[in-house]
Amino acid sequence: MSRRPFFVGVGAQRAGTTWIGHFLRRLPDIRFSPIKEVCYFDAKHVEARKRVISEAMNTRLAVLGLGNYTRKHPLSGLRLCYHYLGIRKLSDDSYRAFFDELARSGAVAGEISPSYAMLDEDAVRHMDALLDQPNVFFVMRNPVDRLLSQYSFLSTRPGLKAPGGTDLTDALCTLCGQSFHVNYPRSLKTYRAVLPEDRFKTFFTEHLFDPARTQAQCDALCDYLGIGRSAVPSDRPVNRAPAVEISLETRAILAGKLAKSYSAARAIAGEDLPLSWQRDLALIDQT
């Protein structure tokens, strides 16, 4: 793949994008945004996300990321802070200047915002034009496993709250209907309608975290971004959440509700679809 100056990572919540961000941040050819989830395009284009950049949690994370970067790179960091003030006002010029600053040394610069899975075609066209046709990658995780991880995350993190219900199955079904970030068929259709095949690549969380495939998957990501390969570090930081155990019956119910996402992924991956996805598809076929 030819090297381009910018990239954007998209993916579902709880799909491993935090780990990917840690990996990319270590690479000498990459200047990863100090703010992993800038959320610029969803704040600009998705009505329900208009104020997301100014929310307290995102503000704290942005200040922490920019503060750490500025301590290591004082001049560049101060310029990034200035540009970020403009990003919070949804300024295209500031967003582009933010990444131009990161790419100043000739490195590839980018960010990962899972919420970009919510964008429509006009928003993706806006992204494509503003960043001069960036490379975009999309990360998917088994829909039921991702849902369970999201429920656990919401249930155990201070300040967050998982939906209630008459029982766990009911609560999970409720959350299933609220997970607007993870409509794989819609997201895939949107990005593939706007971007050419050579600038939109999909990855599966299960392949990335499979010890037998992790290095090859990271090599493929580096090749796609047009940068040098790097060994995957052994200290792999992952934003983990406690496991949630469910019955096979509940799994079948949830998989049925998410059947279109399984089918959309199968249409892309074919026989290389991860085993957990294949097992859930078998459950769907049996119901």
Rank of each mutant, 00 (worst) to 15 (best):
G165W: 06
V144T: 02
D167A: 04
L147R: 10
K201G: 04
K161R: 15
R192G: 03
N142D: 15
Y191S: 03
L160S: 12
D145L: 08
D198M: 02
F153Q: 13
S152Y: 01
S187G: 07
Y151S: 01
N183I: 08
F203V: 00
P163E: 00
F138A: 02
Y151R: 08
D170N: 14
L154C: 01
L195H: 06
G165M: 03
D145V: 00
V144S: 06
T166I: 08
R192E: 10
P143H: 12
C173Y: 11
L188E: 07
Y151I: 08
L175C: 10
R157D: 09
A162T: 09
D167N: 15
K161C: 11
K189E: 15
C176H: 12
N142G: 03
S179I: 10
Q150M: 12
V182G: 13
V136Y: 11
N142Y: 04
R146E: 01
V194F: 00
T174E: 10
G177I: 07
S179N: 15
R141D: 05
L195W: 09
T174P: 12
E197W: 05
P196E: 09
S152F: 03
V194G: 01
V194L: 09
Y151V: 03
G177W: 07
G159T: 11
R199M: 11
A193C: 04
D170Y: 03
A193Y: 03
C173D: 05
V139D: 02
V139L: 15
R141I: 05
C176W: 11
D145Q: 15
F204K: 08
F137W: 07
S152P: 10
Y151A: 00
P143Y: 08
Q178G: 06
Y151L: 02
T202H: 08
P196K: 13
